[in-house]
């Protein structure tokens, strides 16, 4: 097995397997440890400048990447108009820089604020390092290998789809420049550490808050169940 296959076939599958198995195990056996581990109580002002750009920047960029993966044809059609391509590239670049600003603030906060430093674990440092690597390589690609949203659908999408369809074609990425490979690999590292770190809070996004009634009354016996007949749902939006 070549090094390329190791890195771009075995490693991603192993990483995703870890993500699924360990996340489920952690959820079922040690759910107490699943938390976003907010440190806002200890320091708030710098968190504002770090957390908001970091989270929103990365979320929007992730949405862009997913869109390219799911509807590559629409992407290509959009990018066929040069002005639209330019617009997309500028937006992506801006979001990337915004996220970079955020993570730099977050890292400096972790180092400089004593209270925050005292609750920082090794895994926190690893997480920040991996995400920083992803943001930096992403920005370097955007600068050095211009119009990524244009060629990306032709280069990366077939590779990722080949992984997802369990017929991996690592040769598609074998000849790519190092920065591009690093960008992909750092994502697989992200996936691998996901279940072992605070990153698990991503899958706990509480979307059901949008629909649940305000109040929650639970009866302990005979068995714990959420007890909410219609009248318990007072203060539902009118």
């Amino acid at each position: 097995m070549s090094g390329n296959e190791m890195l771009f076939v075995v490693f991603p599958y192993a990483a995703f397997a870890l993500l699924v198995v360990v996340s489920i195990a952690r959820w079922r056996l040690h759910q107490f440890t699943v938390s976003s581990m907010s440190s806002q109580l200890l320091e708030s002002r710098r968190l504002f400048w770090g957390s908001i750009p970091f989270h929103w920047g990365l979320t929007l960029i992730l949405v862009g990447h997913l869109a390219a993966l799911i509807v590559p044809r629409s992407f290509e059609l959009w990018n066929a108009v040069p002005l639209q391509l330019l617009l997309l590239e500028i937006t992506g670049m801006a979001l990337g820089l915004w996220a970079l600003f955020g993570i730099v603030v977050l890292i400096s906060r972790r180092i400089q604020v004593p209270r925050v430093r005292s609750v920082t674990t090794t895994m926190d440092a690893v997480v920040l390092g991996v995400i920083l690597a992803q943001i930096v390589t992403g920005l370097l690609i955007a600068i050095g290998y211009r119009w990524g949203s244009f060629w990306g659908t032709a280069v990366f999408v077939p590779y990722v789809r080949s992984l997802l369809s369990f017929s991996p074609r690592p040769e598609l990425v074998a000849a790519l420049p190092v920065v591009l490979k690093l960008h992909v690999l750092s994502f697989f590292v992200f996936v691998a550490i996901f279940p072992f770190s605070r990153l698990v809070h991503i899958i706990t996004l509480p979307l059901n808050y949008l629909t649940r009634p305000w109040q929650k009354v639970v009866r302990n016996a005979p068995e714990p169940y959420v007890y909410q007949p219609s009248a318990d749902e007072f203060l539902t939006r009118r």
Binding site: Y209, R212, W214, Q215, K216, V218
Partner: peptide
């Protein structure tokens, strides 16, 4: 009886015991 902590919890982790 109308706890605002319960209403504000996005996860629905807070509840009032019926008994």
């Amino acid at each position: 009886l109308n706890p605002s902590c319960v209403a504000a919890c996005p996860s629905g982790a807070i509840y009032k015991r019926a008994e």
